[in-house]
Structures are given as C-alpha cells and as structure tokens.
Simulated assay, not measured.
Amino acid sequence: MKTLTSIILLTLSTFFGNAQESEEKGQSITVTIENITNNNGHVLLTLHNETTFMKAAPLKSEKSEIKEGKVIITFKNILPGTYAIIGTHDQNDNNRMDFYDTGMPKESYGVSNNPVMYGPPEFAQAKFMVTNKNLDLNITF
C-alpha cells in the first residue's frame, strides 16, 4: 500500500509540475536559415546559456525538415535571459554533427549573430538577450 501511495503521489507531482511549467509564459525565438545547400536530412538547432554552450546538453532543441534550402524554427516559452543558438545541417540524419579525422566539421553549421569564426564557436560571440518581446533571428550556415 505504501508503494502504491508513493507511485500516486509521484504521478500527481509530475502532472502538477508539468502543468505549472506549461503555464510559464516566455517569449518566442524564431530562427530562419535560408542558405542551406541541399534538402538532405534535417537542420538541428540547440538553445544554450553560458553554462551549457559547447559543454553540456542544450536547454532546448528543435529539428526541422528543409524545404527549398530554407527552414524556420521557433523556440517557445523562453524566459528572459542571455542565450546562444547553435545549428547544424544534419545531412545524414544521425542527429549529430560529423567531423573529419582532422577535427573539421563535415556538415555545415552556424551560430546566432553569425560571427566570423576561426575555430569553435564562443558564447561571447553568439550570445543575445531575451527580454519581454519575441525575437526573430537569421543564422547563416
């Protein structure tokens, strides 16, 4: 009986936790990428803060089909803060970026703010602020 009670309480707390989370109102970040070289695979976008950028799992991730070399992806319910987005054209649909033995990427990629990069992306170059309005960003691969 004690186990059953624990399971019910855990289920209810999960339900109410998810309900509370879905009621949080945040902003939307809509990302447009228009220069994709082909329609193979998907585009993967990941949203990061400074702690997760190039170090840990993203805060959110989205995946989109490519149509005529273009994708539009929206992250919803983003709370105010400082973020960066990393995107890659996952041509072979293995849900990750592939690299040559030299460490260079095989698949095209880009980050928010479209900085000129001579090495791995840095959060300082890619960061942007979410405040009290929706954002529209363009990323170039």
Results as ranks from 00 to 15, higher is better:
Met1Lys: 15
Lys2Phe: 15
Leu4Asp: 13
Thr5Phe: 13
Thr5Glu: 12
Ser6Phe: 14
Leu10Asp: 13
Leu10Arg: 11
Leu12Val: 14
Phe15Ser: 03
Phe16Thr: 11
Gly17Tyr: 04
Gly17Leu: 03
Ser22Glu: 09
Ser22Val: 08
Gln27Cys: 09
Ser28Leu: 07
Val31Asp: 02
Ile33Asp: 00
Glu34Thr: 15
Glu34His: 01
Glu34Ser: 13
Asn35Lys: 01
Asn35Ser: 11
Ile36Asp: 02
Thr37Gly: 02
Thr37Gln: 13
Asn38Trp: 12
Gly41Lys: 02
Gly41Cys: 12
Val43Gln: 02
Val43Lys: 03
Leu45Gly: 03
Leu47Gly: 08
His48Glu: 06
Asn49Ile: 03
Glu50Pro: 00
Thr51Lys: 08
Phe53Val: 00
Met54Cys: 04
Lys55Asp: 07
Lys55Val: 12
Lys55Ala: 12
Lys55Met: 15
Ala56Val: 01
Ala56Arg: 02
Ala56Asp: 09
Ala56Thr: 04
Ala56Gly: 10
Ala57Ile: 11
Leu59Ser: 02
Leu59Glu: 08
Ser61Pro: 01
Ser61Asp: 03
Ser61Thr: 02
Glu62Gly: 14
Glu62Met: 14
Lys63Tyr: 01
Lys63Asp: 09
Lys63Leu: 09
Ser64Lys: 09
Ser64Cys: 02
Ile66Asp: 13
Ile66Trp: 05
Lys67Ile: 11
Lys67Leu: 12
Lys70Gly: 00
Val71Asp: 00
Thr74Gly: 05
Phe75Pro: 05
Leu79Trp: 04
Gly81Met: 08
Gly81Tyr: 06
Tyr83His: 08
Ile86Met: 03
Ile86His: 01
Ile86Leu: 06
Ile86Gly: 02
Ile86Asp: 01
Ile86Glu: 06
Gly87Leu: 09
Gly87Ala: 07
Gly87Thr: 13
His89Ile: 09
Asp90Trp: 07
Asp90Gln: 09
Gln91His: 11
Gln91Ile: 15
Asn92Leu: 14
Arg96Trp: 15
Asp98Phe: 12
Tyr100Asn: 12
Tyr100Asp: 10
Thr102His: 07
Met104Gly: 01
Pro105Lys: 13
Lys106Met: 14
Ser108Trp: 12
Gly110Cys: 11
Val111Glu: 09
Asn113Met: 10
Asn113Asp: 10
Asn114Phe: 09
Pro115Tyr: 13
Gly119Glu: 13
Pro120Glu: 14
Glu122Leu: 14
Glu122Pro: 03
Ala124Cys: 01
Ala124Phe: 15
Gln125Asn: 06
Ala126Cys: 14
Ala126Glu: 06
Lys127Cys: 15
Met129Thr: 06
Val130Arg: 03
Val130Asn: 04
Asn132Tyr: 14
Lys133Trp: 01
Asn134Gly: 04
Asn138Ile: 10
Ile139Trp: 04
Ile139Lys: 02
Phe141Tyr: 10
Phe141Gly: 00
Phe141Cys: 06
Phe141Asn: 00
